[in-house]
């Protein structure tokens, strides 16, 4: 399900002393099934942008077209849009509220007016998708789970709505490396199984580099870069000038290249760096 953002500008509190321009003329095409990483600092406009994709915010100017429908047009069913575009906020576990895990995950599908068997089927499926065992966890209180588990229950609540596009705002903040790898691994598997479009908002270049097909960079309300990770990281000087890091290994290869070493710099992961350095060392007879 494609999303097209055209000349999107958003101004908070226009016409007041508190007026601030959060987005300026943003253009973005998200194709069906793509996996995007959205990066930028706090205050760069990332959150404002993603809240437009399911109609939580309306453009001041410009258009957001979801699956061919301009969502600011009169008479558009926003409930339907929000069902198609699932948004997982930062710290989604703060939004858990029910007595049991099952009730919490069932809340959305129930509100859709689905029959009970369908609700249960969806709850089961959503919990398994995030790596939790339905029978073991369904009757527990969400508040007695570990932080990582709570977060997965919250994500399951969004998945139970069967969205076609899943947007996750910093899903790994505050988790340890294992918790982070679990959540990211589940997102990858989810894409493989359901072929949904995913937009991942993150500060971590190293996570984004190894996962996504494309990266969009926000800075001061504008989309300043977009393309494959290799294309975007090529402009590392531009990224550095707006205070964004590139993955350590990419940075390493660029430094080696600058020292006159014959190495490729479009390296994104530790594995790729290993292969490239071994290749260069072998050529010199050192390995």
């Amino acid at each position: 399900m494609p999303i097209v953002v055209k000349n999107l500008t958003h101004i908070y509190m226009p016409g007041t002393p508190f007026e601030s321009v959060a987005l300026r003329d943003v253009n973005w095409n998200v194709e069906d099934g793509e996996f995007w990483g959205l990066i930028g600092h706090t205050g760069s406009g990332k959150s404002t942008l993603i809240q437009h994709l399911n109609g939580l915010l309306k453009p001041t100017w410009g258009e957001v077209i979801v699956d061919g429908v301009n969502i600011s047009e009169r008479g558009v069913n926003l409930r339907e849009i929000r069902q198609k575009v699932g948004l997982v906020f930062q710290y989604p576990e703060h939004q858990l509220f029910e007595e049991t895990v099952e009730k919490d995950v069932a809340f959305g599908p129930k509100n859709l007016g689905l029959p009970e068997e369908e609700v249960t089927r969806r709850v089961k499926e959503a919990l398994e998708l995030v790596g939790l065992k339905y029978d073991e966890i369904k009757d527990r209180s969400p508040f007695e789970l570990s932080g990582g588990q709570m977060r997965r229950v919250a994500i399951a609540g969004v998945l139970a709505m069967k969205p076609k596009v899943l947007i996750l705002d910093e899903p790994t903040v505050g988790l340890d490396p294992r918790g982070r790898d679990e959540i990211l691994g589940q997102i990858v598997r989810l894409r493989e199984r359901q072929n949904i479009t995913v937009i991942l908002v993150s500060h971590s270049m190293e996570d984004i580099a190894k996962l996504v097909d494309k990266i969009a960079v926000m800075h001061k309300g504008r989309m300043v870069e977009s393309g494959t990770p290799k294309q975007v990281f090529k402009n590392y000087e531009a990224l550095a000038s707006i205070g964004l890091d590139i993955p350590q290994v990419t940075h390493l290869m660029i430094k080696l290249k600058n020292k006159g070493k014959d190495v490729a710099t479009d390296v994104l992961t530790v594995e790729e760096a290993e292969a490239e350095i071994l290749r260069a060392a072998r050529r010199k007879g050192h390995a």
Partner: peptide
């Protein structure tokens, strides 16, 4: 990163 550059330079 700088330590790694130093280590690798003689080998590449």
């Amino acid at each position: 990163i700088d330590e790694m550059v130093e280590c690798l330079c003689p080998l590449l």
